[in-house]
């Protein structure tokens, strides 16, 4: 019995040492075209001076998990070091014909759809790897979509801290309050990742998220 207790103690100490050494994984999750990569680019440009990925008005531009390691952000004398994980948008349907309507050739549209389905699967698999998640929602759209609820519900079930970003507040149709009333148990910060509006507030929100 004493030996077991000693073993458990050593195991706990060892795990704690390991936990402290690993870098925090901060995930960007959300439906397609919410502005996850635009936000990732904003963070990367602000703190390491380079962009992370390409953006497009056509959905599912990000079709692979992208990681930018060792980003340090500073706010009010505090520092936060993390690995930023930009994930493909999670959707319940992907139609190659929608890509064709946006001007893509059939072959390219089909290839994009195939890659996009794989990207969604990868994004879901990676949920378990996250230490904290920023859910990026388009503030001009209905927040009650099942994808939003499923993403946030899964994060809640896994006890992963969540910050919700209501993106695209530069647009007239943006309604932050609707997102706040849809998810009252979470902090919601309205930003424009494209123009950098309220990003300082977002960075402060990140510190609160992981503290």
């Amino acid at each position: 019995m004493v030996i077991n207790l000693v073993k458990q103690f050593i195991s706990k100490v060892w795990k704690n040492i390991f936990r402290k050494k690993k870098h925090l994984k901060l995930g960007l999750y959300g439906p397609p075209n919410g502005g996850k990569t635009t936000l990732a680019n904003r963070i990367c440009k602000d703190w390491i001076g380079e962009e992370m990925g390409s953006v497009s008005p056509i959905a599912h531009e990000t079709r692979e998990i992208q990681i930018k390691e060792q980003i340090t952000i500073k706010s009010k004398g505090k520092e936060l070091l993390f690995n930023l994980v930009d994930t493909p948008g999670i959707a319940t349907k992907i139609d190659y014909e929608e890509f064709m309507k946006a001007g893509m050739k059939e072959k390219d549209a089909k290839a994009r759809a195939k890659e996009a389905t794989k990207g969604v699967i990868d994004a879901i698999k990676w949920l378990d790897e996250m230490d904290a998640v920023v859910v990026v929602l388009d503030a001009t759209l209905d927040p009650y979509s099942q994808v939003n609820i499923t993403i946030i519900g899964n994060l809640q079930a896994r006890k992963i801290p969540v910050l919700i970003v209501a993106n695209k507040i530069d647009l007239k149709k943006a309604k932050i309050k609707k997102i706040q009333s849809a998810f009252p148990q979470y902090d919601v910060i309205g930003i424009s990742a494209k123009y950098g509006t309220s990003v300082d507030q977002f960075y402060e929100g990140l510190f609160a998220l992981v503290s």
Partner: peptide, 11 residues
């Protein structure tokens, strides 16, 4: 909730 995520992945 986990099954909802599985439903999306299997879809």
């Amino acid at each position: 909730k986990e099954e909802e995520a599985d439903l999306i992945a299997i879809t």
